[in-house]
């Protein structure tokens, strides 16, 4: 069996990662989609992350049993790859591209602006659990650099001045930082 893929609708709406409701039966269904074979490990982890939004410990326990390997070994593999996360995702996800094309056109300044406005460092979630701020190496839209994604949707030709307009619909206002 092949791992599941984002449907056209999901791709269009860019909803590959948002927070979801899930239960043990979803985890078991996700795990059962993969043959009990070592080569299934990474696809199954990807599947579980898509199901739960992160690699929940209870999900890894089910997977370990299915593949007959230890949970520790799963952690060993999963921590190698930047895609996997081990804590609950925030409501919204903002990825700021730090690829070369974006860097030379000021992508790092866009990231700093987000860090300042959200009062977090890249890789962290805001204290209210609303926004995850992530850095990403190239989204493949380099010609439209700098690029960011908000909940999977690409915004091109970004600049520091466009940051407030991106954050406003997520409930973050510029005034909140004013002293």
């Amino acid at each position: 069996m092949l791992p599941p893929f984002p449907t056209e609708k999901k791709v269009k709406n860019g909803m590959c990662t948002a927070q979801k409701d899930w239960g043990m039966q979803d985890i078991e269904a996700a795990v059962a989609r993969h043959p009990a074979h070592r080569g299934s490990l990474i696809p199954a982890l990807q599947d579980l992350q898509e199901t739960c939004g992160y690699l929940a410990p209870e999900a890894l326990a089910v997977l370990a049993k299915h593949l007959s390997i230890s949970v520790n070994e799963i952690y060993g593999v999963a921590t190698f790859y930047t895609q996997f996360r081990f804590s609950k995702p925030a409501r919204h996800k903002i990825q700021v591209c730090q690829g070369t094309a974006c860097h030379v056109r000021g992508g790092h300044m866009v990231l700093e602006e987000f860090e300042q406005m959200l009062d977090v460092k890249a890789g962290e979630a805001t204290k209210d659990g609303q926004v995850d701020l992530e850095r990403v190496a190239c989204l493949g839209c380099c010609a439209l650099a700098p690029v960011i994604t908000v909940d999977g949707l690409v915004h091109a030709n970004m600049g520091t001045r466009k940051v407030p307009a991106i954050l406003a619909p997520l409930g973050v206002k510029e005034e909140s930082k004013a002293t």
Partner: peptide
Amino acid sequence: KIKKGAGAFVCGEETALIASIEGRRG
């Protein structure tokens, strides 16, 4: 079959890519 990468630049290297398909650290 399609295998999705899991976000590691080094997995573009042939032997690391193979390790990754085999379900190991890349």
